[in-house]
Write a protein that binds this DNA or RNA. Sequence first.
DNA 1: ATGAAAGCGCTAACAC
DNA 2: GTGTTAGCGCTTTCAT
Lengths: 318, 318
Amino acid sequence: MSRVVNGVRNVDPEIQDVVRRAIRTTGYSPNGAARSLVTRRAQTVALLISGAGDGFAARVFTDPFFGRIVSGAMTYLRGHAMHPVLMFAETVAAREQVVGYLRQGSADGALVVSIQADDPLPRMLLDARVPVVLFARPSQPLPVSYVDMDHYAGGRLAAEHLLARGCRYPATISAPGDLPAGRDRLAGFRDALQRAGRGPAPVVEGEFTLDSGAAAMMRLAEDHPEVDGVFAANDLMAQGACQIVREQGRRVPDDVAVVGFDDSTVAITCRPPLTTVRQPVEKMAAAMAELLAGQLQGSVSSPTHTLFDPELIVRDSA
Amino acid sequence: MSRVVNGVRNVDPEIQDVVRRAIRTTGYSPNGAARSLVTRRAQTVALLISGAGDGFAARVFTDPFFGRIVSGAMTYLRGHAMHPVLMFAETVAAREQVVGYLRQGSADGALVVSIQADDPLPRMLLDARVPVVLFARPSQPLPVSYVDMDHYAGGRLAAEHLLARGCRYPATISAPGDLPAGRDRLAGFRDALQRAGRGPAPVVEGEFTLDSGAAAMMRLAEDHPEVDGVFAANDLMAQGACQIVREQGRRVPDDVAVVGFDDSTVAITCRPPLTTVRQPVEKMAAAMAELLAGQLQGSVSSPTHTLFDPELIVRDSA
DNA sequence: ATGAAAGCGCTAACAC
DNA sequence: GTGTTAGCGCTTTCAT
């Protein structure tokens, strides 16, 4: 009976038929807990959104970015009979709860998305011997698998596009300084400029918010009025920049070209629609799930890193 | 031992201590599957996003609305040692998978969010005797608990605000016709106008997208150039409307006041920021989880409906 | 108050 | 190829 449910080979077709019929008429359905108890697999992975901050939970899902991760992870998981359990780990207590959950075998492994530079969770999970895959390289080196985008290439892409469309004085509104990804984007941007024989570009640090993008643009306009191209480290800041440019009576992209990052929803709703660097988030998340699955079935043992290429989406802002 | 882990009364404090110490030094953690097997509780609920459509998965989580639901549900669940498993049910196969999952007891009940007027899933779940709570009243009457907002009151709120700020010719860009919530909003809007002694307002049906909102506004401007106030059934359409108004050289809100619905992220990023009707989505989702929990512990047996009041968020667009 | 033992429903190993 | 059985790790009941 177990054999026909689980499709083990070498079962008499006739007896198979009888069992199947019985199952259908009885409305039988195998019990997951019992199965898990013996197989030691929950067919479940934890999807952890990790980081600190006020109103964490509320804020996180307001950003379509996480939605895309969830969506991408699910595309892989659903095809492999695995299910994602969503958990937040934003406080000490929450992190302990997460680790406890994993330790009791309710999930077979964890996909973790940190939104904080120094997140203690990955190490905690590793110490608890939980199979883990991270979204993005951890700021501290850790023996763990992760997927990431080539942020350096992303910054380069933005710089090259600005240059190609004739910008003479490109500047950038950068990410908060402690994010490795942000530093990479900045480095890529700078190096591309340098390779093109340009001097150092003005940099104003933003905080990924609309307002900080606007504020940064105001400072840029004041300190460097010659700036005619801006690369913002995310779309929201790019939108803030666009708003300021227009409020100052100048035009995007004619007077100031603006390139965003992420290709989020605001990239489309912004006026003008943003030219932006897109991360293949869904693909990355799916790869993350696949990496974890490999780890679970034991085919992969040592930490693996998969890097993805950014894509420049050209719209009207640059 | 089981007694001390589960905090059963009447245990010698001394022996309790010994056990606790042993647990700590061993690094023991009870096995969830084994526990579930005997308690017949998975401490897990399915969070189902249900509906049809192309690119369903990708689209769904791009909308912060679902994020807010997830977030609200989690606030309740995490305090009650329950965990949400995310599932999509957008195809026949996916729905069967979902029902199968629930039937094997891997989740104790289901929270379902339908984004389609006639969703077969709730009935399927009910037939499988799965405890269910819906977000929003189903379009067909069903013996099931749900939470919902008073959409009629939402439409009324919008109309009254438009009237109060002096609009003489209000119009509305409505939701697709088959949504009960959309019909309620429209009815509330109309009734409030009528109660104020106004004639019937122009109605153009939209599709919840930026473009459909823009298209609707263009038609409105053409067919009813006197319109000086617009209530859009969601923020995205409201933003589309704002863009058209401004492109036609008129001002928001001075020439045309615009009220949105949902208080989504675009309400803030839109220029001008949108006056909008906010659904207390997080609260509603938490209530949904609470309703389900009550059903699970048997304290609630008959279908319960909880209705929430909308809130008008006044910004600059009206 | 506490030890012992009977399952929960399943899979996998074993014997035939 | 197929019936039988020993656990998986826990909770709960029943003695004591």
